[in-house]
Design a protein around this nucleic acid. Structure first.
Length: 415
RNA sequence: GGACAGUUGGGUGAGUUGGCUGAAACCACAUCCCUGCUAAGGAUGCGUACUCGUAAGGGUACCGAGGGUUCGAAUCCCUCACUGUCCGCCA
């Protein structure tokens, strides 16, 4: 949730930022008016209620003193009628504002590059040079067929399209990567946690998936529960509705989880192979920080994800997302894209975002800031997406015969 | 899934014959005083959010959630959620 008071006070500046993210100025004007309407309605209701409270108090005094309460009762009853109407008006104003405000995306940072889609993203640097093959490198599904690693057909049989089964060496590789990622993240100060893969509605709203993106989530029938689309949801919400001590900050967490996404709107994209699945494994980093340290932690998280790829000897590049490509909750996002020689292109393998106070405001995650309470900054990033790492290893470590080598750092995990 | 009990501020925990309780007390925490250090002791402060005000200081809401009764509810009634205990089932 954006800071509505900030929007009121710095309307032009705030509007310019949100337009960068694709919000229309009409929407913002509407929001502005709803906010004013709510304040008015609340003020009116509170005044009437204060009257009512005072008279009720008097009523008690009269009773005690044995005085006649007939006149007072008449006054109170008359006021109550007004009160009920004002209360309803205030309730509606609040509901209208909430409905609007919850679907407004976060402000992008001022330094976020302008642009409408991924074509306007800015490459920051490349790490490791892709090796040249003296044969035409295969795509991962071709390699899978040769090695029997991924069983797409049986994934479809068990569930439906966009599900698959990893077998043998590939299954062990997935487990090895999860262990490697978690162990490495731990050395950077992230505490390893094991979290529920189902969360309730309030948590999904806290991190911004709801109410706007319900069609992207798998919902448990008959319950207000959802399969998590990323462990960012439970990790960030560990401190939902809490006020933490500043000495605890930054809180750094890492967890493995499967991620479940409906991929609504992605029909036809990446239908071949394991790039885009309804269920995939991911190791996530989440940070809750003091606002002053979120930029530094952000850099650390980007560096960490890049380091993982470097240790795996996987060439990658670091890309800053433009305003139009930024996700709903993010103020700033850096994607890390790994080189896939079979596809002959870089593909996203990690996405690291500084969310500032947007989620903290929704999830009520605060810290004692002197004599007041302030919202923490939340950050999240993949380190790394496991399924896509497997693909990257397959394509980068293939030989002419279609064999696949295993990166050296994983040897002890595959032993 | 069945039966009973409970859900109050950072914690423990009073308050359930409706008004003087946004909430005792204790602990924790903060500042100060005292003590050569430590330990012990004393004073004061200490829920959250919104709102009016330059400020001092007011107002409103919140005692699991929602609804009801009432001039007035933490206190009475209803629904739901959660927790505990016993039973059933089970990795």
């Amino acid at each position: 949730m954006i800071d509505l008071k900030y929007l009121q006070k710095n309307y032009d500046e705030a509007t310019a930022l949100l337009i960068k993210k694709g919000v229309s100025s009409d929407t913002l004007e509407q929001l502005h008016q709803l906010f004013i309407a709510l304040k008015e309605a609340n003020a009116q209701f509170e005044e009437a209620k204060a009257n009512q409270n005072e008279m009720s108090k008097l009523f008690g005094v009269y009773k005690k003193e044995g005085k006649d309460t007939t006149d007072l009762k008449a006054k109170v009853d008359a006021n109550k009628e007004l009160l009920v109407a004002l209360q309803e008006k205030a309730r509606q104003a609040d509901e209208a504002l909430q409905n609007r405000a919850l679907v407004i995306p976060n402000f992008p940072d001022a330094k976020v590059p302008d642009g409408v889609d991924e074509n306007d993203n800015v490459e920051i640097k490349r790490v490791l040079t892709p090796k040249t093959f003296d044969f035409k490198p295969k795509e991962h599904w071709e390699l899978s067929e040769l090695n029997g690693w991924i069983d797409f057909e049986r994934g479809v049989k068990l569930v439906k399209s966009r599900f698959s089964v990893l077998k043998g060496e590939a299954a062990r590789l997935e487990r090895a990567l999860i262990g490697f990622f978690l162990d490495h993240n731990r050395t950077k100060g992230f505490e390893e946690v094991s979290i529920p893969f189902i969360n309730n509605r309030a948590m999904l709203q806290g991190t911004g998936q709801l109410p706007k993106f319900e069609e992207d989530l798998f919902k448990i029938e008959g319950e207000e529960l959802f399969l998590i689309p990323t462990s960012e949801v439970p990790l960030t919400n560990l401190h939902h509705d809490e006020i933490v001590s500043p000495s605890q900050l930054p809180l750094l967490y890492t967890a493995y989880s499967p991620c479940f996404r409906k991929e609504a709107g992605s029909a036809g994209r990446d239908t071949r192979g394991m790039i885009r699945q309804h269920q995939f494994s991911k190791v996530e980093m989440v940070a809750l920080t003091h606002p002053d340290q979120s930029d530094a932690i952000f850099e650390m998280m980007v560096a960490n994800a890049s380091e993982l790829l470097t240790l795996l000897e996987l060439p990658h590049r670091i890309v800053e997302l433009c305003g139009g490509d930024l996700g709903f909750s993010a103020a700033r996002t850096i994607d890390i894209e790994v080189w896939l020689p079979g596809q002959n292109q870089y593909r996203e393998i990690s996405s690291i975002s500084n969310v500032r106070d947007f989620q903290a405001r929704r999830a009520k995650i605060r810290f004692k800031d002197g004599d007041k309470n302030s919202f923490v900054h939340t950050l999240n990033g993949s380190a790394l997406a496991v399924g896509r790492t497997i693909i990257a290893i397959m394509e980068n470590f293939q030989n002419q015969e279609g064999g696949i080598a295993i990166p050296k750092v994983l040897e002890k995990y595959m032993a």
